[in-house]
Design a binder for these strands. Structure first.
Lengths: 221, 221
DNA sequence: TTTTATTTTTAGATTTGTCTAAATATTATT
DNA sequence: AATAATATTTAGACAAATCTAAAAATAAAA
């Protein structure tokens, strides 16, 4: 089946929202899409006509299996393009989102298969988010939030949930990136900040807010 | 100024047509765009409102200087993406046109500047067509048609005007590609066919039609 | 359990790009 | 120069995606 750019964007947003909440409601989707509830309702009808949605008036909605497939294919394209932009074209990660939003709607499947190969079949995008394979399978990783990592256990930064320029600036300052080794030396009860040790850096202190946006996994050597 | 995908496509088509004829008329543009004359008229009004066109009702039209700039920027993007698809992703040249038609509308200027650098600032796309630079300047090459190349003068294939799968198949068979050295040994009056010598290949005969689609230039060593 | 507030949907309008059919202009032919 | 043929434009309609304002359904509060 064929989808317009707008339909793909709605499907992708619904996918992201239902990851959190299971069921999605009109207003939250309107907020996510930066549009009006009335516009959302119109699109819901269209998508449910195309069997992308389980939708009951006034009750909320979620993607069908087919809907999920479409969502994953868009997410896959988005993340592969982000990887391309950062790794091949040298963009900073906070600059790639909007461009990938456009590239993800280019329709050729062969393009995306070849791109994936060209990039060396990456499993994670530059923010650490997993890249679904062509069957929609998502690579899993046992990650936990840095704010709950056991003391003095070395772990590896696997993803960062806030991808703003401000966050990037801070992470650069602390020399933290995806793949960096990190351990927590001490936590301070007063404000939740913590002393950490980043590989090859002197120990330093980060705020609770930063920690909550960093996910790590144990190095499975 | 901002342009829709549709506006960009019209501007690009007008550009290509006016290269041939100077002035463009409604019906030929409708044919080129695979649409109806009435739709063309509607768009002409819109583009002339945006000062992209010199347009007089019933008289024909052509791009303004600003219009040409927009056209060249779209052509640039198209050809850079074609280069990427062939050289980096390994597509055959007859498969890249439709994909580049979509990619050319991705709007980021930084993207295209970085792509150009990443590709090594190519001057010609995989079909031998020149790639305008960021100022709209088009690299020139003194090319002539293979059908009028002087006998026994070695030249280099610089572009091929028919880019169909059928043409590609023939060229592969003759081991002719962009950059291949070639000379004409003999012309046959009977049907315009000619005996040629392609580097490292035994001499062979090609039809007049093939020759007319191949452009060459003298190797300026 | 009414009343109030919130959420969601409908109704109707708007913009963009397209279409068909009819009207008008231009060009070619007798 | 009148008529026929062709090219172009207008008028009016339609689908997609959006919007505002109002109505209807649901949830929360008194």
């Amino acid at each position: 089946m064929n989808f317009t750019e707008s339909e793909e964007n709605y499907i992708k947003s619904i996918y992201h929202l239902q990851q959190e909440t299971g069921m999605v409601n009109t207003n939250s989707l309107a907020a996510e899409m930066q549009t009006r509830a009335a516009s959302v309702t119109d699109m819901l009808k269209k998508l449910s006509g195309k069997k992308m949605l389980q939708y009951e008036k006034y009750k909320g909605f979620k993607l069908t299996e087919n809907g999920k497939k479409v969502a994953l294919s868009v997410v896959r394209k988005h993340r592969l393009w982000e990887y391309f932009l950062v790794e091949k074209l040298g963009f900073e990660w906070d600059k790639v989102h909007d461009i990938a939003e456009e590239l993800e709607h280019v329709s050729s499947n062969e393009l995306i298969e070849r791109l994936q190969q060209f990039l060396g079949n990456p499993s994670f995008d530059p923010h650490g988010d997993p890249i679904p394979d062509s069957n929609g399978k998502i690579p899993k990783i046992n990650q936990l939030n840095l704010s709950v990592l056991a003391l003095n256990k070395t772990a590896v930064v696997s993803s960062v949930s806030n991808q703003s320029p401000q966050m990037l600036e801070m992470l650069k300052h602390y020399a933290i990136a995806i793949g960096t080794s990190i351990k927590v030396i001490k936590r301070f009860e007063f404000d939740g900040s913590m002393e950490i040790k980043v590989s090859k850096q002197p120990a330093c202190i980060i705020s609770e807010l930063i920690a909550k946006n960093i996910f790590v996994h144990y190095d499975d050597k």
